[in-house]
């Protein structure tokens, strides 16, 4: 073999070594690029345009954002701010409850009551249903005319009247989504060494102190993960209020969250205003990113 061909072979081997990792992540990278990255970039581009989803998008700069955030006379301004208000109410109440309740149940199950596996399965079961089934079941259950709530003497239209609709929406959301977080906490709790509790108990620490000083720090990363995921899910809430708080298919839901407005503006009846809808989506996305970054920083600072 001459010097030149061995040089070429060496270069080929080196290049192969560098490209090999890409071959492993290639399939995921392709799917991610086609279904996540490109639509995101296109969505951000559309937010700076005026587009009806048929013709060519027309560049309008920050006009859509101005319309949503500043122009008080605009319908989109009203829709955006009422939508964000409703979404924030949902997030502020739903996220802490969706963290604390599963944590409590996981902790009770961790203490091994009899039939703990059966209880775990029952608590996880609602997560397996689709949002449509869950919405319909609860709508039926809370119907003030022919639902189970009327059996109990509560003739209140739980699903459509304010503020009752909020209560029913939150109960349903927690009932539906709690299982996932609970399972994550259960596995996290199982990884905490039991010896830590034993030594703490010898040192005189009570259950509450053990929970605060041992359990919580040990499952900190799982808590962060579930908080971020629950937060993003709660900001994107759409299915539950749309199905559950609707009187009938012809009516709008009682609780109109931001994603409901985004969907209506882009795909509702009449001409599509995709630019405005995309701008609202971009603002919502930025909001979620900022809050998630803040949470990560908070945890990192605590580590130091």
């Amino acid at each position: 073999m001459n010097k030149n061909s061995s040089k070429i072979l060496n270069t080929f081997v080196k290049a192969k070594g560098k490209l090999l990792p890409f071959a492993f992540i290639g399939p995921h990278l392709i799917i991610f690029t086609i279904f996540v990255l490109l639509p995101t970039i296109f969505g951000v581009y559309i937010s700076f345009t005026q587009w009806d989803m048929i013709g060519t998008p027309k560049w309008v700069g920050f006009n859509n954002f101005r319309e949503i955030l500043i122009n008080k006379g605009s319908t989109f301004y009203q829709q955006f701010w009422s939508g964000i208000k409703n979404t924030l109410i949902f997030v502020i109440i739903n996220v802490p409850l969706s963290i604390c309740i599963p944590l409590l149940f996981a902790f009770i199950l961790y203490m091994c009551p009899y039939c703990s596996k059966l209880f775990q399965s029952i608590l996880y079961m609602p997560t397996l249903f689709s949002v449509t089934s869950v919405g319909l079941i609860w709508m039926q259950l809370l119907n003030h005319r022919f639902g189970l709530a009327s059996l109990l003497g509560a003739k209140v239209p739980w699903a459509i009247n304010m503020p009752h609709a909020w209560v029913s929406l939150l109960i349903m959301s927690i009932w539906w989504t709690m299982g996932t977080n609970m399972v994550i906490y259960q596995s996290a709790l199982a990884s905490v060494p039991r010896e830590l509790y034993e030594s703490a108990s010898i040192d005189g620490a009570n259950r509450f102190q053990q929970f605060i000083k041992i359990t919580l720090p040990s499952i900190k990363f799982q808590l962060l993960y579930t908080t971020v995921i629950t937060l993003a899910g709660s900001f994107n809430v759409y299915g539950q209020p749309t199905i559950m708080t609707r009187v009938d298919p012809g009516h709008a839901p009682a609780i109109k969250v931001l994603v409901f407005h985004i969907r209506n503006i882009a795909f509702g009846s009449g001409q599509s205003i995709a630019g405005i809808a995309s701008a609202m989506s971009v603002i919502l996305g930025l909001f979620i990113i900022i809050v998630s970054i803040l949470q990560f920083r908070l945890i990192r600072n605590e580590d130091i």
């Binding site: 149940f105 009770i108 199950l109 203490m111 091994c112 009551p113 009899y114 039939c115 703990s116 059966l118 209880f119 029952i122 608590l123 079961m125 609602p126 249903f129 089934s133 319909l136 079941i137 609860w138 039926q140 259950l141 189970l148 009932w175």
Partner: peptide, 27 residues
């Protein structure tokens, strides 16, 4: 005794938890 108390607490919670599913199936 502790496990038994926890069992009863969880039994009540799970009975309520499973109610919407049972109601949906029966409906």
């Amino acid at each position: 005794i502790k496990r038994l108390i926890l069992f009863f607490i969880m039994f009540i919670i799970c009975s309520i938890w499973v109610l919407p599913i049972v109601y949906g199936v029966l409906t």
